[in-house]
Each structure stands twice: as C-alpha cells, then as structure tokens.
C-alpha cells in the first residue's frame, strides 16, 4: 500500500508540479498587480478630490460586492460576446488582480489613515510637497503597518487562485481533478493537494514574517504590539 502510494505520487508528480507552477504564477502576479492597484486606489481614497475618491469607492464596492466567480465568468465568458477575448490564464490573472486590488486598497487605506496626521504636518513644515510627504513619510510607515493584513491577503490568494480551475486554468486543483478523474483515487489525490497548499501556506507565512521582522522599526505597527507584550 505504502509502496503503491509512493509510485502513485511519483506518477502524479509532473502534473502536480505543473499545476503548482500555475498556482504560484497566479498568486504572485495577482498579488503584485493588485498591490500596485491597491496603492493607487488607497491614495485616491485618502488624498484624492471628491471625484477621484468617488471613483475609487465605486470600484472597490463593485468588486467587493460581487463574487469573484461571477467576475471571472464575466471576464472569461462575458467579454468575448463583445469581442474581447482572453485565454483562461489571462482571464484568471486579470480577475484575481482586479479583485485583490480592491481588497488591498482597503487594507492600505486603513494603514495610511492610521499614520497620525502630525506626520504629514511635520513633513509639509519641512517644505516637502504633498507627494514627497506621502512617499517619504506616510507610505514607509503605512506599508509596514499593513504587512499583517497583506500576509492574510497573500494566503487568501494562494488558496482562492484554485477558483481559476473553473475557467480551465490548469492550476494545482485542476490538475488534481484531472488525475483523480483518471485514477478514481480521489481521497489520495486531494489529500496530496491539501498537503501541498498547507506547506505553501506555512512556508509563505514564515517568509513574510521574516521579511516583516527585517523591515520592522521600533514603534511602528506589529513591532509596537510585540514590544508592548514583552513589557
């Protein structure tokens, strides 16, 4: 039985690795693009004019108010009816990135607003313009504060990228389904898949934690809570 499973695992490995590759691709690209989008939206919400702010709120509410699956269906099945055609991978990347952008915008807005207003006053008093103040004073603090929320978003994306299998992206879950359908060993296949997600989650949490520690500054964000607990 054990030897049999070992053989089965080895046989499945090429498919699993290929799926894993797509899962990581989906996760990394959509978290990165979503981050850039999130920063722009968050800054628009906090510092934008009424119109800019309204536009950002509209986008964020639209995305957060509708299921990711529906968004993917619109991009993959809906848009072709008006002549905009994407491959499954493209559609999944666009959908996940647009979706993650809205959520990241809200985390980032929260952390930008948690930087005391005195920081902006001090920056402006030195003669920095608004953009310089945001770039050199507000964001370095806000981004550090948002690392824990961002870590959750990463893990969320890692796992929810599996939804892309519904539009035929051959990521990890889709490969699992493929193997299972041909071997009927559903339990073993999805147990393997579950373990892979679990390992990915543990490893990425650990890596993000290390990055956070390395970037941490006494008195900012997570570091404050830790030092308070230590006291």
């Amino acid at each position: 039985m054990a030897a049999d499973f070992g053989q089965f695992f080895l046989n499945s490995l090429p498919n699993l690795l290929s799926g894993l590759g797509y899962t990581l691709l989906l996760t990394f690209i959509s978290i990165a693009v979503g981050f850039c989008l999130g920063i722009v939206l968050a800054l628009g919400r906090v510092y934008g004019t009424k119109v800019v702010n309204g536009f950002c709120v509209g986008y964020i509410e639209l995305i957060r108010g509708t299921p990711l699956l529906v968004q993917l269906f619109i991009i993959y099945f809906g848009l072709p009816t008006i002549g905009i055609i994407f491959t499954p991978l493209q559609a999944a990347l666009i959908g996940l990135a647009l979706n993650s952008g809205a959520y990241q915008a809200e985390y980032l807005r929260g952390s930008i607003q948690s930087v005391e207003s005195g920081q902006m006053n001090a920056a402006r008093s030195l003669g920095m313009n608004k953009l310089q103040s945001i770039r050199h004073v507000i964001l370095p603090q806000a981004l550090r504060i948002s690392i824990p929320a961002w870590s959750n978003e990463f893990i969320y994306l890692l796992q929810y990228s599996s939804i892309a299998y519904i539009i035929q992206v051959t990521e990890l879950t889709a490969e699992g389904k493929f193997i299972a359908a041909h071997t009927f060993r559903y339990l073993e296949v999805f147990a393997m898949i579950a373990v892979i997600y679990l390992i990915l989650t543990i490893v990425s949490t650990e890596i993000i934690d290390r990055i956070a520690k390395r970037l941490s500054i006494p008195g900012i964000g997570a570091a404050t809570r830790i030092s308070l607990r230590d006291m």
Partner: peptide, 15 residues
C-alpha cells in the same frame, strides 16, 4: 524651508 516648526507632540518621523 525658511520656517521651522517644533510641535508640542514632537511629530518625529517614526520610521
């Protein structure tokens, strides 16, 4: 640039 400001609650850049 020509007018410094010193605040009651310091407002040093925390980072």
């Amino acid at each position: 640039e020509k007018i410094g400001f010193v605040f009651q609650d310091f407002n040093l850049f925390n980072h």
